[in-house]
């Protein structure tokens, strides 16, 4: 290993930027989280209230609901993405004419701004004008209305997220699969293993680090999804059935200007995300260390 001073020097610019635009705001939010501070309360000052914000948070049904919505949303979306992405990556492993065309088309959703994705899906699903409810009604006589039906709205945001992020999973899985050594698989086939056995006992264990990595990235980003859901369901409706914790924080900090409570909420969410991701990270490094 080389002189560590040069190493620190190389690392420094990144760390300085992350410190200034990342850690410094974090410290501020941490600080504000211990205060009762709302610009439009009778006393506008910041009043130190210790852990009162957190005390209130662990009982706040709106916050806990939002958290639960977020967790369910992330769970369903990420699991589906993993399954579909893995499957599609397998399908791309083999060469066939037109492969790169299909692959390029498949990447398109990744390139669209989340806020535009929300708008597109709103246009698709808005009752009266959108083709989805229209066709469902015409073909199956099925009443699809994301403004009224909470489970349909939830389904819509999950499907939208699957549509948006599966390409990323596919590409990462594909990169992983292409990099796998082929000998073990061939050896197993020679030994008479069937396709499923090869997949279950060879490919899957080999892919474990990739799966963990994708899981990590998707969970990390899924938990902070705001723009597209906010746009699609117009702020998390019907009721609060699609109000993710990101949207909820947004509503508490922006219109309610409840900076103290919103900061605490933000930190608690960050805390839960970090803990969840830390477990994945540890299992990832432990897998690698072996």
């Amino acid at each position: 290993m080389r002189k560590t001073r040069t190493g620190w020097l190389l690392l420094a610019p990144s760390m300085i930027i992350l410190f200034v635009v990342g850690i410094v705001p974090f410290i501020y939010v941490l600080y504000v989280g211990f205060f009762d501070w709302n610009l439009f309360s009778a006393s506008r000052e910041m009043n130190f209230t210790g852990v009162d914000n957190y005390r209130q948070l662990v009982f706040d049904p709106l916050f806990l609901d939002a958290l639960w919505v977020t967790i369910r949303f992330t769970f369903f979306a990420v699991v589906s993405q993993l399954i579909i992405g893995f499957f599609l990556a397998q399908m791309l492993l083999r060469d066939f004419p037109g492969k790169s065309f299909f692959r390029t088309i498949h990447t398109i959703p990744l390139m669209i701004a989340p806020i535009a994705i929300g708008a597109i899906w709103r246009l698709l699903t808005i009752p009266g004008f959108g083709p989805v409810p229209f066709l469902l009604d015409r073909w199956f006589d099925f009443d699809f209305n994301i403004g009224t039906n909470a489970s349909q709205a939830f389904l819509a945001i999950v499907i939208m997220d699957i549509w948006h992020w599966t390409p990323f999973v596919t590409l990462t899985m594909l990169a992983g699969l292409s990099a796998l050594p082929v000998e073990p698989r061939e050896a197993a086939l020679v030994d008479g293993a069937n396709g499923w056995q090869v997949f279950r006992y060879i490919t899957l264990p080999q892919m474990q680090p990739v799966v963990l990595t994708v899981l990590f990235i998707r969970i990390m980003d899924g938990l902070r999804t705001v723009d597209e859901i906010n746009m699609l369901t117009n702020g998390g409706g019907p009721g609060t059935s699609t109000r993710t914790v990101g949207i909820h924080i947004f509503r508490v900090v922006f219109p309610q200007t409840d900076y103290g409570y919103g900061s605490a909420m933000s930190l608690l969410t960050l805390y839960l995300t970090i803990v969840a991701c830390w477990f994945l990270f540890v299992s990832l490094t432990q897998v690698r260390r072996r």
């Binding site: 852990v51 957190y54 005390r55 662990v58 009982f59 608690l268 805390y271 970090i274 803990v275 830390w278």
Partner: peptide
Amino acid sequence: VFISIVLLVAIHLLWMR
């Protein structure tokens, strides 16, 4: 240290709840 802090927060939150 990280694990301790995580546990500290978790214990406090659960305690409050």
